[in-house]
């Protein structure tokens, strides 16, 4: 057991990342570059450009002798000035953590949790670590009670899911768009792997949820949604489907020009999915 992961943050209690109360590990680095990303500072790995060092008001950032940006958690006041300033959609605060180090962070909150969720960034980009972490949790008599979930963009090869199958309990997958061109425009990436992942995870019984983040005028046309509903229905009408209205909060300026759907629009989205035969719809 030797893997380390680049971790952006660990949140001990979350009520919005899967069933029950969950500890969430946010991995640094994502293979998508979504216009609607709510935590864009997790997209890239720090390139040590050093732009943030002078911005920090508490002196928590410095450059090492080899030119790396060094973050001092003890001096940090959490203003996130560095993150706001970063021209590279990253953060100087991500750190490499070993499996035992992450386990140590889970042990304290464990009695209060239903489980753990790996999010990001894109956790499957560091899938060797994910497999080791989950295996270690499964064999730990105090932690094996916790369910092990991944919150993913779905853009991982089949081999990753097959490797994780023995240790993962559920995967929540974002489906940005069924239409390839829309998907490419929204994420900078093809959706072929995403669609294959949803099918594979469903067949494994590991598909905890499909999430549709809907952006008015971008991916919310009734035709496109009806096709998406039909496609999901063909896989399994009982897929838990979460319809999420776009919110500007945390999004980069380029995404903020997109409007937020009103309650009537949200009702319309859910109705299209119901008409498609999907029965487990959560609208938020």
């Amino acid at each position: 057991m030797s893997a380390t992961a680049l971790v952006c943050d660990i949140v001990r209690f979350s009520s919005v990342d899967g069933p029950g109360n969950r500890c969430v590990v946010f991995f640094q680095g994502c293979n998508f570059d979504c216009i609607a990303c709510h935590n864009p500072y997790t997209i890239n790995v720090c390139n040590n450009c050093g732009e943030c060092v002078g911005v920090c008001e508490s002196g928590a950032l410095s450059l090492t002798s080899v030119g790396d940006v060094l973050w001092d958690p003890a001096a940090c006041v959490g203003s996130d000035s560095c993150v706001s300033w970063c021209p590279h959609d990253s953060t100087p605060k991500a750190r490499h953590m070993s499996v035992p180090q992450v386990l140590d962070q889970i042990r304290g909150p464990a009695p209060f949790l239903s489980g753990i969720t790996l999010s990001g960034g894109e956790a499957t980009q560091q899938s060797v670590f994910v497999a080791e972490l989950f295996a270690a949790m499964k064999s730990d008599h105090k932690l094996n009670r916790l369910t092990r979930f991944i919150d993913s963009n779905g853009a991982a090869p089949q081999s990753v899911w097959l490797d994780l199958e023995p240790v993962v309990d559920g995967v929540m997958v974002d489906l940005k768009a069924l239409d390839p061109d829309t998907h490419l425009a929204m994420t900078g990436h093809s959706n072929e792997e995403v669609l294959a992942s949803i099918k594979l995870l469903s067949s494994m019984g590991k598909l905890a949820e499909v999430r549709l983040l809907l952006l008015p005028g971008v991916n919310d046309s009734p035709d496109a949604l009806a096709r998406t509903g039909a496609w999901l229905h063909d896989i399994d009408p009982l897929i838990r489907l979460k319809v999420i209205g776009f919110r500007c909060h945390g999004v980069r300026p380029i995404g903020r020009v997109i409007g937020e759907p009103n309650p009537e629009a949200m009702d319309g989205y859910a109705q299209i999915m119901r008409d498609a035969g999907m029965s487990r719809i959560i609208s938020i």
Partner: peptide
């Protein structure tokens, strides 16, 4: 939207 999370906290 997730009352189960509160149940977890109370139990814990």
């Amino acid at each position: 939207a997730n009352p189960e999370s509160v149940v977890d906290i109370i139990r814990g």
